[in-house]
Nucleic acid binder design. Structure first.
Lengths: 210, 210
DNA sequence: TGTACATCAGTGAACGCGCGTTCACTGATGTAC
DNA sequence: TGTACATCAGTGAACGCGCGTTCACTGATGTAC
């Protein structure tokens, strides 16, 4: 039983939670200071270095957690779809739930995707890339199951993720009503892309699913 | 002939150019300091206040310029389309040109769209909103001209702009070959959305163009 | 179990730094007569 | 055209501030014997 190690982990967690807590629509990760984060976590500024070599290292740990949450989201959505069908609708609903429950984690990823630090951009893009790849696999699987071939499924997945992430971002500061409008909008957009891709597959007479 | 006023404008320009010059993939507007901007513009830090009351005010002036560039882009694209048809392809080509010629202005808008300051986010969103509205008008016009009704043209415009802006962002740090790949990808994506929207309009039997 | 030693998370004082902002000023340009 | 005064873009010194980071330390926890 390693009491010391446990305590260290607890402090590390407190630091990460402190950063998350202080982020909001008006406070990006980039505007946090090491001293603020340490203060909110209840430790001396100098103790920060027992856990991370710099503030960005803490940020990357948060991006990692964001990636984990994304993978959970995907698994969750798959299970739900297997139960009640309606892939697009279920996916959007699941995504919006995840968004509400992890809003600051999502904010971080969204800001840093176009943000100032190359390290961050690369890390966030890798997480999203992984998500896109899994989605593309699912799309191909559905296409086979339903015998409705898709054109460029990888590209379809990318477009869908771009739309859901970027427009989903608006939900972070939206009222429940606005969120519902947003959901319907996203569902229609994804439907258009899916239909468009199916038509392109048809018109490329030889039914390549790619 | 107002020499003094002209000189003042020249200094103001120098300040804005200084900010643009120092922004890059690794330097967001948010990481600039008033003193740096003044230094690069060749004036004393205190002189900055003769032109802007704070750094953000300069930033908003830049966002304004970004908006002007977007409107020019749109007019330019319209003229080209009138000449050689092929709306999607021409639009993407024009957009990518604009992007190359105004990369830091675009960077600013892209970063601040999901950025830290509410004032900035609102200003950028207003510019993009305007762009979307104009695009939706064009889409409706084309739909009538070609007698191919569109479903939810406003939403189609929004999806297209989201895709072009966010995936276009990758072109900022891309090689020419990568840019070509990106262009083709975007063209296919827009085509899918357009086709999807047309199919939705058809299946809503009464041919509402909305 | 008891003792002697090692580890190491957390500390508080201190540092030098660049920052935004204030202030009273200078001197060239502009204006009124 | 000449003179006296007003305007105002640009200045340099000075300020207080929060920052990241270093350092030698403390004392509780862990380990070897």
């Amino acid at each position: 039983m390693s009491t010391r190690a446990e305590q260290k982990l607890r402090t590390r967690r407190a630091l990460m939670d402190s950063a998350l807590k202080q982020m909001s629509a008006d406070r990006g990760f980039g505007s946090l200071s090491l001293r603020e984060v340490a203060r909110e976590a209840g430790i001396a500024p100098t103790s920060f270095y027992r856990h991370f070599s710099e503030l960005d290292e803490l940020g990357l740990a948060l991006v990692d957690e964001g990636g984990v949450a994304l993978r959970q989201l995907m698994r969750h959505a798959r299970k739900r779809i297997a139960k009640n069908g309606s892939a697009i609708s279920t996916s959007i609903e699941t995504f919006m739930e995840y968004l509400s429950n992890n809003s600051n984690l999502f904010r971080l990823m969204l800001q840093e995707k176009t943000g100032v630090s190359k390290t961050f951009r690369t890390a966030v893009k890798a997480e999203i890339e992984h998500f896109v790849t899994e989605l593309a696999d699912d799309l191909r699987r559905f296409a086979v199951e339903q015998n409705k071939p898709l054109s460029d499924s990888r590209l379809v997945a990318e477009a869908m993720v771009t739309l859901v992430f970027n427009q989903g971002a608006e939900a972070l500061d939206a009222t429940p009503t606005e969120k519902d409008v947003l959901k319907e909008k996203l569902k229609t957009e994804l439907r258009m892309i899916l239909i468009g891709s199916q038509r392109l597959a048809l018109s490329a007479k030889s039914g390549k699913t790619q």
